[in-house]
Nucleic acid binder design. Sequence first.
DNA 1: GTATTATTTAGATATACATCTAAATATCTA
DNA 2: TAGATATTTAGATGTATATCTAAATAATAC
Lengths: 99, 99
Amino acid sequence: MPLSQTIQALSDANRRKILDLLKKGELPVAEINKKLDITGATLSHHLDILKRADLLSVRREGQQMIYSLNLSVFEEAAEQLVKFFEVKKPKNKSPQWRG
Amino acid sequence: MPLSQTIQALSDANRRKILDLLKKGELPVAEINKKLDITGATLSHHLDILKRADLLSVRREGQQMIYSLNLSVFEEAAEQLVKFFEVKKPKNKSPQWRG
DNA sequence: GTATTATTTAGATATACATCTAAATATCTA
DNA sequence: TAGATATTTAGATGTATATCTAAATAATAC
């Protein structure tokens, strides 16, 4: 997944909350919904975005849809972000733009 | 800085490009602008957002404004994100929601 | 001081998106 | 099959925001 899509997925507070909840283990939609102050439709929309970013998987269990974190993708996203934040200290202090 | 503001700042591709450029060292606005396909006004807007997220500092040098990365804040943001991505593996496999 | 260069600010526009209500789909139960 | 429950989809709405042009501010050069 491109970093842009991951960051995009993380850019909403409710979606971060969803990820946080799922870090502790899989959950059906209704359980997630209890923790968030949004309608089911809105939650479904957020879940869809996280799913398209490949951060979540779903399976059906009876009437319920059970969402879980895609651990490998989640960790890979973390690595990409860490890489983005890496700053290679330049040896020479001369500005890159003068001259 | 709250994580929300950092992620918000990172959520635009041009802003990520700006941060990337400044990782290599400080730059005046005009130099940054050469690398981005946006007007000066738009660039100024993005710089303002990054500055408000405390990720950048500015100083004046003659007519030029020279922007640089706030390294400590940048690294702190990285730590916050890493923390967000930490998954505590549960010892027991039983779902948190059944029962 | 006037012109020139560098950047920011103001104001407008168009698009993206979080949210809602209502309707549709899917499963289970009686 | 009819009704109840769980979730998603469709469609509408309001707000946020990336972008632009034009004008304002700041510093230097003549």
